[in-house]
Design a protein around this nucleic acid. Structure first.
Lengths: 362, 362
DNA sequence: TTGTAGGCGTTATCAA
DNA sequence: TTGATAACGCCTACAA
């Protein structure tokens, strides 16, 4: 990769370097409850109640003066609670495991932002792993998260067959799927089937009879359902889309480009292309540019998710907008209910079509 | 937000729901070393040595048969080591804290992917938080990570003045900066100053004398240095860029769009715009489209980072490529050396200019 | 090679 | 309201 195109500059003073060494060799021991107890003259248990005690509003278990004094001392010595110890004792870590296919996908990153934000609201921290959509790595991710004792998991990369979900049910660990669904596990997703239909209806209204689909990867429910919704509308309208115009692609721009190349090489080319995600759609646009085909005028393109970039393209991209942030947030709320023992249901969030210049009447 | 445009479908069977409730109410206790010990007939310490023992290659501390038996039992009961307990005992969590401004920024997400990948290679897991570039949130992020006992931190959002770094040095916690530098803390970044110069040299060669800069936010070293490099080249060439043509912007497309609007409203407009990151540059392209200005032909645009999308745009974006993945990976390697007590230096990774159609001779 | 014991920092329970 | 104590699961020095 780029690993050889690098320079190293020594930008630290000698003292700095020495200090680094010392800190590494003598890692400062953090102040503990015992430290605070000794300094404040109270017993550890009292200090614990004041500093980390279960925050039941009405019930105080130390006099105001005592509490204030203890808090003061804690602040002075820079006391930070040790989550490991607390977790060991309480049997819960307040950690949420998150498995995503890959973070550099804007859609997944945005869902993740929703998750993080909502989780913070419940006092939960997230532990994230990238599975790269690889079964083996996925399994390792789950194991790592388990061993770190996450209280629950949010899985954003489940293949339709469920993948490694049995491990979780075995362990009795609560989990929620996002972005993709699998079996009847609780999942928070966009209503992908409806979204696929919207895209098709839009293109049909514009008069496109010969449409093609960049269908993504076949183990992702969202890709499958978007594709299915799209195909169904065309079939219902009597314009069945032949197999050759349905192309499997990866979800990145490179995938979209390759898929489009393939479609354009065929004998009869489509007048419209529906890509199941925006990154692929942008790859299509790149390919069209190379072939000097003007998007919108000569060939319509529709994407999915409506990432912020879509609106800014030179030919703005028509896209089915999915509420990515909300999917993330909602998944946390659902998970909290699940952890609380409440029954939960899967949720489908409604998408909306945003028509722009990349799709136009035939 | 979108929170009301949602539908709920009950997609679970009755049985499923009941099962959920049960698992929530009676969270299955994980198998521990003791469990395995009892079942295998060996003592906990032996089991521990076999399963989680320090992996010194040559030194085995159990007979092959014993080890195999123990491992077998462990597999059967689904033993997963309790990282909390191990951490408490060992005083190290094998957790790496990562603070980023925001994950939905492709650049940061890509750096993060590099971090995760390299960390996994060392057996470390990452704990990520978004600081949203807000000082208060940033401080909270650091505290949360500290309380979760991370062994070290990677900070991707440090303001030039260092921000909350003093807390870390106080705690003696090893850390490395990525993406942005601050004071003389060890940092792995792109050579932003050089990159800024490259952009300027490119535009000057094309004959652009009236250039403008979308300078990003003033507390980010990368934005500052890219801008400075750019300005220096123009100054050295005798074409000083006036204050009015240097616009502060956020790092997203919206920021780029607003910045460009402002530049185009001025009396004398630039013939070229350098945006300190690609997202902003794409915002510029969107703005130009609205004003029916053709990028490249009428006004040149140069971005920074060369995210994968840049090459696929209808008018491909000229950009200074930074080795994002490598920055992430390198930061972990550096951190490991730091934790090992070795002296470390900051590293500047060299960028390269990728010229495309968005910049053309004047 | 295997067993024993003690403690990492916190919290829940019980007693004062 | 406060104090004492035990235990969460694991690791490691030491003894056998």
């Amino acid at each position: 990769m780029h690993s050889d195109d690098q320079q190293s500059h020594d930008q630290q003073s000698h003292d700095q370097r020495i200090q680094d060494q010392e800190t590494a060799n003598a890692p400062a021991r953090r102040a503990t409850l015992a430290t605070v107890a000794k300094l404040s003259g109270y017993h550890v248990s009292t200090v614990s109640r004041v500093l980390n005690g279960s925050a039941v509003p009405g019930v105080r278990s130390a006099s105001a003066a005592t509490a204030e004094h203890i808090r003061q001392v804690a602040r002075e010595v820079g006391y930070v609670p040790n989550a490991q110890a607390a977790a060991l004792r309480r049997q819960r870590t307040r950690l949420l495991g998150v498995v995503m296919a890959r973070m550099a996908d804007t859609v997944l990153a945005t869902i993740y932002e929703g998750i993080e934000r909502a989780a913070a609201g419940y006092g939960f921290q997230t532990l994230v792993t990238n599975s790269w959509d690889d079964p083996v790595t996925r399994r390792e991710c789950v194991d790592v998260l388990l061993s770190h004792g996450v209280d629950a998991m949010i899985l954003g990369d489940s293949p339709v067959d469920g993948g490694s979900l049995d491990v979780l049910t075995e362990h009795g660990l609560p989990f929620v799927l996002v972005n993709r669904r699998a079996a009847d596990h609780p999942a928070i997703t966009c209503d992908d089937y409806a979204g696929g239909r919207m895209a098709a209806e839009h293109l049909l209204e514009l008069g496109h009879r010969r449409a093609a689909v960049l269908a993504g990867l076949p183990y992702a429910s969202n890709a499958l359902e978007r594709t299915q919704g799209f195909l169904d509308v065309y079939r219902e309208a009597g314009h069945r889309i032949p197999r050759g115009r349905i192309v499997r692609t990866t979800f990145d721009t490179a995938g979209g480009r390759m898929g489009a190349e393939r479609l354009l090489r065929a004998r009869s080319t489509p007048t419209a292309i529906f890509a199941v995600n925006d990154a692929a759609a942008i790859g299509v646009l790149g390919c069209l540019r190379d072939h000097r085909i003007e998007p919108g005028r000569e060939l319509s393109v529709v994407g999915f998710n409506d990432i912020p970039l879509a609106a800014e393209l030179t030919v703005p991209l028509t896209s089915v907008r999915s509420p990515m942030q909300t999917i993330g947030e909602q998944s946390v709320h659902t998970l909290m209910r699940l952890m609380g023992g409440e029954p939960v249901q899967s949720t489908l969030l409604r998408p909306t079509l945003v028509a722009r210049a990349s799709s136009a009447p035939r």
